[in-house]
Simulated scan of single mutants.
Amino acid sequence: MEYLGIVVDDLEAGVQRFSDLFDLEFEILNIDDLEVRTTDGAIPDAQAPQSRMRVAVDSSGFFELVEVAGADEGFRNIHFRVDSVEDAIAELSGRGLHLVRHFVVGQMREAIFASDDLFGLRVCLLEYAGPSLSAAMRAKGPEVAKGGGGVDAIR
């Protein structure tokens, strides 16, 4: 498991609370400032706005805090880092999950599955090179290299 995604009404207040409580350091990313390229999606995803979304990720890999206008506070998703998003999409789709979005942010690839498939929790797959998700999201240039291994290769 890579990150637990949690919606907060106020990103700065959420970062402060989680930092104080768990002694974590966060980096705030404004999605509008990043290079986001949607690759595909099978069904509409009301929980994935295209803008007005701000994200903070902690450097230890535990929490992703998300500020989204109009979204209810609470758990949003669970992220797994995989060697190959395509292989993992095929495996989870074969197990009955429905892909809603597949996109690239900088040099990070992400796939999101429908929350209706897992009791309101979205499963997200992340593929990126290097130790830092935020650095991969901010990076310009070619996409991450495709690895081998799907769900069995989840870290």
Rank of each mutant, 00 (worst) to 15 (best):
V57T: 14
F18E: 04
G61L: 05
I31F: 06
V66F: 12
L24K: 12
A153M: 01
M108T: 04
T38P: 05
V55K: 08
V105K: 00
I28D: 10
R109T: 02
L133H: 03
F22N: 10
D32Y: 00
V104P: 01
R138E: 12
D10Y: 01
Q47T: 09
E110P: 03
G96Q: 06
G94I: 11
M137Q: 11
G94K: 11
A13W: 06
D117G: 00
I154C: 13
L34V: 01
D10R: 13
Y128A: 01
P44G: 01
A136R: 05
Y3N: 10
E86W: 04
G106S: 03
G150T: 10
L21T: 15
R122T: 05
V105M: 09
L125A: 00
R17F: 15
L99E: 09
I43T: 14
D23N: 15
D116S: 15
E64A: 13
A153L: 04
I154Y: 09
T39R: 14
A13P: 03
V36R: 13
A42E: 12
A71Y: 06
G61A: 10
A13S: 11
R109W: 00
D152Y: 02
A56M: 04
I78P: 00
G130L: 00
H79M: 12
D32E: 14
K140S: 15
T39I: 14
A129E: 04
K140R: 15
D152A: 15
A56R: 04
R81K: 15
R122S: 14
S115H: 12
T38S: 11
V151C: 10
G147S: 00
H79D: 04
V144D: 01
M53Q: 14
R37W: 02
V123W: 11
V8S: 07
L92E: 01
D40K: 12
L4F: 08
Y128E: 03
F80W: 14
G141K: 02
Y3R: 04
A42K: 12
G74E: 05
R52C: 07
Q50V: 15
A136I: 03
E86N: 07
Q50N: 10
L34K: 12
L97M: 12
I112A: 10
V85F: 00
G148S: 13
A90L: 01
S93H: 07
I112D: 08
R101A: 06
D83P: 00
K146D: 07
A56S: 10
D116T: 13
I78L: 12
D45E: 13
D40T: 10
D87H: 07
D9T: 09
G96R: 06
L29S: 06
